[in-house]
Design a protein around this nucleic acid. Structure first.
Lengths: 225, 225
DNA sequence: AAAGTTGTTGCGTAGAGTGGAACAGATGGC
DNA sequence: GCCATCTGTTCCACTCTACGCAACAACTTT
């Protein structure tokens, strides 16, 4: 594995990461505090980021994320071209289970919700596309962990069932079932998941959801070559 | 204006820009050729980008854009929080005019389609959210140009009409009308536009579209404080 | 095998990037 | 009004990083 790193680049990227928090706009000093860099340094790095549209500066001189990120973000998603294949599957899962269905990919050491179709139920598990969650809890987390880290436990469960379930792990009121998408070439793409309130999704209901997710994932895995 | 730049950062960002072209996956040498950097340099910069999830590497060692871009891209869009305000307006414009309505923002020296609602007509102007177009043509292009560059012509037209129209400029079969969104503080946010096939959108129809866009933009401008 | 690819690594040096302080605008309190 | 305290930018000297290049390694093609 490459151990090479370019420090100034990584510092610049860590500036962008500073916007992952609650704050959607930051002053220069706030960024400096957040990243541990010197103000002067942040100022220089940020102006390079700004030049390329990765940051933009408000009228009140506060920094915000820039439009280039969204432009490249849509390019990233288009790369997959899987949206067209995945959306219908998610919708079908919602129709079959009555719960929310989503598709997660690995992003660093966390998981990123790429696509999501919400349950029609008034009480449902709600989450936005683009949200980032831990790999350490939740069915989809376990599936992704099995492929990213050397998580022996998750691997074992996947080998046995081909899928994972969780109940009240990440959030005490939510249960979920998830299965991996692996193409014919053996390349891992992400995890399909169904999630909903624990009260509806437990016992047989959860097991049924697991089977439905597993089935959908298998079919999807075959379709995408 | 800040003239400071951090070269290695800008080189790294130019690597990401290399994916703006047709290719959605590039080899290291292709990136090197595209950016004019040395292979060894690209290798080091790219591994830093990869470490942060801005690039990812396929099984066949080709580079692709990474999920971090999409994650931050959605954050960027959420920053606006304008989606909630803009989408209904776009839908209303589609209902009123029967044509496609969209919202553009500035991205460097081009315009970026942030939101779009498509016309229900079978023949319509189609374009994806995230697409990037020139500022040099099209009604929305003129509006944005008036605010970004010192485009005297566009500024004059905006001052006179408060809006712009175009017919067959960027694409010979498309006409459009656009107006700026400027908040109470005088901050410019982007351009609202309606566009459709020239055959439907000309003469009185285009003028009516212009008025509708202008009205919608004024209301929206007021709403967003 | 040889002659191309490809991407990675080692190395010495030029010079870019950095820390720190000093400066310059804003803002605000009294 | 004035001083105190924020903000962000600029300057400068030094250090150490990032870079160009070459050599290398791992695969394909001929």
């Amino acid at each position: 594995m490459a151990e090479t790193r370019v420090e100034s680049v990584e510092k610049a990227l860590s500036i962008l990461e500073a916007f992952s928090g609650e704050q959607r706009s930051l002053t220069l000093t706030e960024i400096a505090k957040e990243t541990g860099l010197y103000k002067s340094n942040v100022s220089r790095l940020a102006s390079s980021l700004e030049r390329y549209g990765y940051l933009k500066r408000d009228a009140d001189r506060r920094f915000r994320l820039g439009p280039a990120l969204w432009r490249l973000g849509t390019l990233y998603r288009r790369n997959f071209e899987m949206g067209d294949a995945i959306r219908p599957v998610l919708r079908q899962l919602v129709a079959d289970t009555g719960e929310t269905a989503s598709f997660y990919v690995l992003d660093q050491d966390e998981r990123l919700c790429l696509y999501r179709e919400n349950s029609p139920e008034p009480v449902r598990h709600h989450l936005d596309e683009g949200a980032r969650l831990t790999l350490r809890a939740g069915a989809a987390g376990h599936v992704l962990a099995a492929f990213s880290l050397l998580d022996a436990g998750a691997k074992a469960q996947l080998a046995a069932d081909g899928s994972c379930t969780s109940a009240g792990e990440r959030n005490p009121h939510i249960a979920s079932a998830a299965a991996p998408i692996v193409d014919a070439a053996g390349q891992f793409h992400g995890a399909l998941a169904v999630s909903g309130p624990l009260e509806r999704l437990s016992g047989d209901a959860l097991e049924m959801a697991r089977l439905r997710v597993l089935l959908a994932a298998r079919e999807l895995s075959r379709d995408i070559l």
